[in-house]
Simulated scan of single mutants.
Amino acid sequence: MLSYQHIYHAGNMADLHKHALLATMLAQMAAKPKPMSYIETHAGRGLYDLDAPEALRTGEAQAGITRALGAGWFAADQPLMLALTMVRAEAGPDAYPGSPRIAAALLRPGDTMHLAELHPGEHAALITAMRGTGARIYGQDGFTMAHSICPPEPRRGLMLIDPSWEVKSDYQSIPAAITKLHRKWNVGVIALWYPILRDNRHKAMLDRLRSGFVEALCSEVSFPPAQARHGMIGSGMFVINPPWRLANEARRLEQVLAR
């Protein structure tokens, strides 16, 4: 359960889908003057070096963010590109921001950030990556953290749930966990990222979520695996209480990434 390290996959096609939607939501919500809370249950290390041996080994960044930048898939003012530009100005041209650093780039003074990461090494790296951002960082189970602070203050806000999915029971337990969180924080935007694998193991979970949250937004993209042996062939985001303009950007991204 504590073996997953995202450095092998940072900047891949799934990250582009997940992070572009996340950045869009944060930018849309930050456009209003009211303060907000950002909560992340599985934060990872927050910042990745795409020139690291682990990232180069899989080739996933080359098939994702490197290809996207070379082909001009995103406009310079797309919120993910704004965050990437800010991070690379500080951390160098091979840096790729995880969702905590994307959030830090787009949130404003007065907003709050709560990040949980259970993996000891990733937790230590997260502390370093988020230094100076004001984020509260928890070395504990992300759902435990989320339940303990919900509803947060400020009450307006967004939660990203992005587990490693190495534990197969997550597919059965996460709908109930999200339902409980929504009951405690019914105004919060709750976004779940999930992989689309060859065996479609996400479908039963998604059916349960859709039956409980009929007005939620579901965005999915398909793409070829970065290597023939890889099992992930797509990316999904399920968003409860989506910002009202998110559906348009989701449809646009689905077309951009279907290449």
Rank of each mutant, 00 (worst) to 15 (best):
K18R: 07
D162A: 07
V167S: 07
L206D: 11
H147D: 08
R131D: 13
T144H: 08
G231Y: 03
T66D: 14
D141S: 13
L2F: 14
K184F: 00
A27D: 04
V221H: 02
E254I: 10
G70D: 13
F143P: 00
A75M: 05
I178N: 06
N248T: 15
I174Y: 02
A116Y: 02
F143K: 02
A63H: 13
T144I: 13
A27Y: 00
L257D: 06
D15Y: 02
M130D: 00
I161E: 10
N248V: 15
Q140C: 15
P109D: 12
A61R: 13
V256D: 02
L206V: 15
G139M: 07
A63Y: 06
K184V: 00
D170G: 11
L217I: 02
P100K: 03
A89Q: 15
P224W: 09
P225K: 05
Y38F: 15
Y8Q: 10
V239P: 01
A146F: 05
L192E: 08
L21K: 09
Q28G: 14
A135M: 04
E122I: 02
L126W: 05
M81E: 14
L80W: 08
H6T: 00
H182C: 04
A52Q: 10
G98W: 03
T128L: 15
G231D: 14
G59V: 09
K32W: 12
R201V: 01
P97N: 10
E40G: 03
G59M: 10
Y171H: 09
G92V: 06
Q28N: 13
N12D: 10
H202T: 05
V189E: 01
Y38V: 04
S169F: 03
M86E: 15
D94L: 14
A104W: 01
G64L: 10
L2V: 14
K184L: 11
P79A: 08
A258W: 00
T112N: 06
R156I: 07
E60M: 06
L257H: 02
